[in-house]
Simulated assay, not measured.
Amino acid sequence: MTDRDYQQFPDDDNGDVLWQMHQDGDDLTEAHEIEYSIAFTSQEQAEKCALFLLHEEQKISLFVDEESDLKEWIITIYMYMEPEYSDIVDLEEWVTKIAEQYQGVYDGWGCMAYVYDDEIEDDESPASLNS
């Protein structure tokens, strides 16, 4: 196990997630599809925000979260980028400002892990959750 580089992985939530990805063997030099989410209690505001983001040429999805206690509309913005700390922080600030403009709440980011196992043979498939 290597020591954490606090320049690359600062001591906060974003740094912790990126450090965990690195520890898990995720290649952070590869571009990932990172998802930033905004939650809305108003369908009208969610749709206005979605339209704005589409005009900004962003790849998005909009769905209703029926599972939450109060009905929420969730916009997910999909950014294809290297998961680099300062870029993530900058995008969080941008998404937070947009969320506030449309009475939404920034709800965090996430992405799929990109872990490659060099020992996989041609006839083997990568490990999956379906065992």
Rank of each mutant, 00 (worst) to 15 (best):
E93P: 00
E66G: 00
D26A: 14
E124Y: 06
E121F: 12
A50W: 11
I34K: 02
E47C: 00
Y80A: 05
E57S: 05
E82W: 00
Y36Q: 02
K48R: 05
L28K: 11
G108Y: 07
A99Y: 11
A46H: 11
Q43H: 13
Y80V: 10
E82S: 10
C111A: 15
F63N: 03
D5C: 13
Q7K: 14
Q23F: 11
E100P: 01
Q103N: 15
I88V: 15
D123T: 05
W109A: 06
L91C: 05
E93N: 15
Q23A: 13
H22G: 01
E72S: 10
E66Y: 11
L91A: 01
H32G: 04
Y36D: 01
Q23L: 15
D122R: 02
T76A: 04
I74N: 10
S128P: 02
S68V: 01
L91P: 00
Q7H: 02
C111G: 12
K59F: 11
A99V: 12
D11M: 14
K71Q: 14
S86A: 14
P126N: 12
I88C: 03
V95E: 12
S128N: 12
I75N: 11
W19N: 07
E57K: 06
K48F: 01
Q101P: 00
F63W: 10
S86G: 03
